[in-house]
Computed example of a mutant assay.
Amino acid sequence: MDRVLRAARASGSLNLSNRNLRHVPDEVYRNLDGLGGDDKWWEAVELQKLILAHNSIESLKDDIRNLPCLAVLNLSHNRLSELPAAIGELPQLKLLDVSFNLISKIPEEIGSATSLVKLDCSNNQLKELPSSLGRCLELSDLKGSNNLIASLPEDLANCSKLSKLDMEGNKLTEISENLFSSWTMLTEFNASKNLLNGIPDSIGGLSRLIRLDLHQNRISSIPSSIMGCHSLAEIYLGSNSNLLICKSSYY
């Protein structure tokens, strides 16, 4: 471990995946404070990338705040049941992957991580997404598939740079007109395997949309406004109920 940590202090990147860890070593949280007398402290750099995937980690300490330069944090495929509020104290965080855990709630404090570009919280036990995500104005890639989410917070309309949204395998019943009309940069949208009853007319404003997957829902008709999706190349609508599509529309 000492050798790995020394290398991380030189590169700013630490990969501890697939090590059967049950907790994050305290040395990781200490970052540069753990430098020994023999270390070349003048060559050390702050940790920017931390990979802890495919372990058995059950908790993350608030001490994560001691890594203020962290830009990438991958905690996927662990046994986390929650995230600490201190996750919002990472001002440089751009990528957060907590997929394949046991998380039931993402703390509202995540809205303070305003540099966040990509969030993957898929394959957890989430019933909702925090409304504070609407403060993450740089967010462009959001993956929340295979959870228990019944609705999307209206504050996500503030995330105007959103280009990829994957909500497959949840319990969504609708997507609001306001959300679709705000996501003008959206290129990929996957809401398959949900409980959607329809598609808002505002979908016609998504002129950059390339891929639309709404298969296995309860959608009965497609609004004619979809003709405004000039870039649409892939559309999946199978396994819906009595679906009606205009001849002039996509098929």
Score class of each variant (00 low, 15 high):
E27M: 07
E27L: 11
A85Q: 10
S140N: 08
P200T: 08
S221H: 09
S248V: 12
N190K: 12
I64N: 02
N146V: 01
A71D: 10
P84F: 02
K161F: 02
E43M: 14
L137H: 13
K105Q: 14
L133T: 04
K193W: 09
E58K: 14
G228E: 10
P84R: 00
C229M: 07
G198C: 11
N240S: 08
G205D: 06
D141R: 06
D141C: 09
T114P: 03
M227R: 15
P200Y: 04
Y29D: 09
K118L: 05
N55I: 10
L195N: 15
S140T: 03
S207V: 13
N55M: 11
L47R: 04
A7M: 10
I235K: 03
Q125L: 13
M1P: 11
F189D: 00
S182N: 12
N74M: 08
M227L: 15
S207P: 00
L70T: 09
I103E: 03
S176C: 08
R3E: 14
V72E: 06
G169F: 02
L214S: 01
A53T: 14
M185P: 00
G204Q: 03
S181Y: 03
S181E: 12
L179N: 07
S59A: 15
L21F: 04
G205E: 11
S76F: 01
R19A: 09
R79H: 11
L152H: 06
L152S: 08
G134M: 04
L70S: 07
S145I: 00
I106S: 11
P200S: 12
G134P: 13
N170Q: 11
D97N: 15
S140D: 02
E188G: 01
L116H: 03
S224K: 11
L237G: 12
L80V: 04
S160K: 14
P84Q: 02
N101T: 07
R22C: 05
L93T: 01
G204D: 05
A7D: 13
V98Q: 02
R3P: 00
L142K: 03
Q48G: 14
L142F: 06
S99H: 01
L75V: 05
N15C: 13
L206P: 00
D2P: 00
L83I: 04
S248Y: 06
A8P: 08
S248F: 10
V4K: 15
L244N: 13
P68S: 07
S56T: 06
S231F: 04
